[in-house]
Write a protein that binds this DNA or RNA. Structure first.
Lengths: 138, 138
DNA sequence: CGGAATCCGCTTTGATACTG
DNA sequence: CAGTATCAAAGCGGATTCCG
């Protein structure tokens, strides 16, 4: 118990403080927590990151693999991820040209946590589903 | 290698399969992973959960504490969280009436993972910010 | 092949006003 | 106090078309 070597404190405390600080500015200094949640919360980022975690892939390969995504949203998503330094974009000047996307170390480190969350989701699925049914029914 | 006792496999593999399966149905059978990501990705759920992790709180207390949230969105958010069984709602028939919201064990278990993600966000903040600056500048 | 640009509908959100 | 109802505004995302 109480194994607070260093950073432990209360993680939740730390996060709340972080959120509060940015809220005080009227939300103009973006909170990093909300920021990453915004990204991972959008419809496609996580799936793109997940796909890339198996190795580099090309644009159209991703487009085919990720069922339901439009060309536009893949472009937008990849650009945002590249901007944040979560993926890198490499252009091969062949004919026809090809573009390859790769996860950066930073992106890999993010995936770890997302996987934890996703794992929770899968395990909690049955219970949540039951809760909803009970709520809607009663 | 290939230590597939039971669940181990590759967590990412498992998640991808989960996503794929729901995609095949045209997204009609909702993927639990996307489902939880949708919830945590919305603007307020995480903050509400985080606040409640310190103990039960009343509606207007939350409304004051969570800077920027509107009455309407707090209502909507709490209702969704209650439906999923992440928080419970308890009404005290006093005058004036008061309502108290509490995290369920399921909600607590979710917080753990969210905290991990939030912690990553805080530590990665500087690098991401630098990446964006470099991207926008160059 | 890998995008960029435009248009456009739908959902989400915020303000405001009203209620038990 | 703790909501509900309504409306308008904003944003996201899809379809389509064009370009290097």
């Amino acid at each position: 118990m109480a194994s607070d070597l260093q950073v432990t404190a209360d993680p939740v405390e730390t996060i709340l403080r972080e959120i509060d600080q940015s809220a005080e500015t009227g939300g103009k200094s973006p909170c990093p927590v909300r920021d990453v949640l915004d990204r991972t919360g959008d419809k496609w980022s996580v799936q793109v990151l997940l796909r890339l975690s198996k190795g580099p892939e090309r644009f159209n390969a991703l487009l085919r693999t990720i069922a339901g995504i439009s060309q536009r949203m893949l472009t937008v998503t990849l650009k945002a991820l590249e901007r944040d330094g979560l993926v890198t974009r490499k252009v091969f000047e062949t004919r026809p040209p090809s573009v390859e996307y790769t996860l950066t170390p930073l992106g890999v480190s993010l995936i770890q946590h997302l996987a934890g969350l996703a794992d929770w989701a899968i395990r909690a699925e049955a219970q949540i589903s039951a809760n909803r049914k009970a709520y809607d029914g009663g």
